[in-house]
Amino acid sequence: MKLIVEPSPHIKSNNSTDKIMLRVLIALVPALVMAVYIFGVRALTLSIVCVGSCIIFESLFRRYIRKDTNIDLSPAVTGLLLAFCLPVTLPYYMAIIGCFIAIVVVKQLFGGLGQNFANPAIVARIVLVLSFTSEMTYWVKPFWHRDDIEIDAVSSATQAVDGITAATPLMLEAGEQAPDLWNLFMGYHGGSLGETSEFALLIGFVFLVATRVVRTVTPVAFIGTVALGAFIAGADVGLHVLSGGLVLGAVFMATDYATTPVSLTGKFVFGIGCGLITLVIRFFSDMPEGVSFAILIMNILTYYIDKFTFPKPFGAVKEGDKE
């Protein structure tokens, strides 16, 4: 009789990294469905291109550095999140460049899963915005695809054509009418393909909380800070919360394990910080949208937040304390 000898514990929970990643993917499905409904089938093909190229980049790089090529679902999550940050009209090659930046530059060069200091999808989005500014800020109107317009014609257009493009609600010029709250909430407005429908994102959020993948603390602190700041500044709270990438960023990016603090206190601080930076960028800079930069800056500060929010061990006595 052969007996296995191993250190305790001898039983393990049935949770696994792949199960967590799968749950995140499932949580993103409602937003994907809404994206296809609002922006057309191209939203789906763009997502597939992103997911596919992320998985290919990940396995090619792992093979190149002769590491374990048995990859998990994490590049799929990165790919889908990146796709959600892109305008539906973005040429595929640009999306693939974004995937390369996310997977190879931001994730693998820093050591792969769990070792990257910044969120791959967010850095890729920022790089794309800075490199291909006009394509990355070309917003089509919801349901534009029903008007029979060729994608090539749209993406090569440098001039905004009346009736096709729509500013995201945060970029409205004076006098322009913002969509009402219901349309904002359901996502019937211009924006990146996965960020517009808060309705769908919230379904995903509830699923993630119910399956214990994420904690509510970061999204609540993040969105709460932005809402409170907008209220104090006298701005339209509904517009600030429901437009732009706030909910997508708060639910799916500010809760990324690798790039955010581990303790609950740290997560709270992280959320507040993200909210404050978002407000500063939205109110005081030329950029209409600050969520991605806010999360990136807080990603960089995560090491320090972690350092100052270590939990106090139970019963520990600090040196110098009276016993």
């Binding site: 990294t17 967590i20 070792q115 394990y257 581990v262």
Partner: peptide
């Protein structure tokens, strides 16, 4: 065992 994903569990 796979890489730590810093989930904090």
């Amino acid at each position: 065992a796979t890489a730590c994903i810093r989930c904090g569990k």
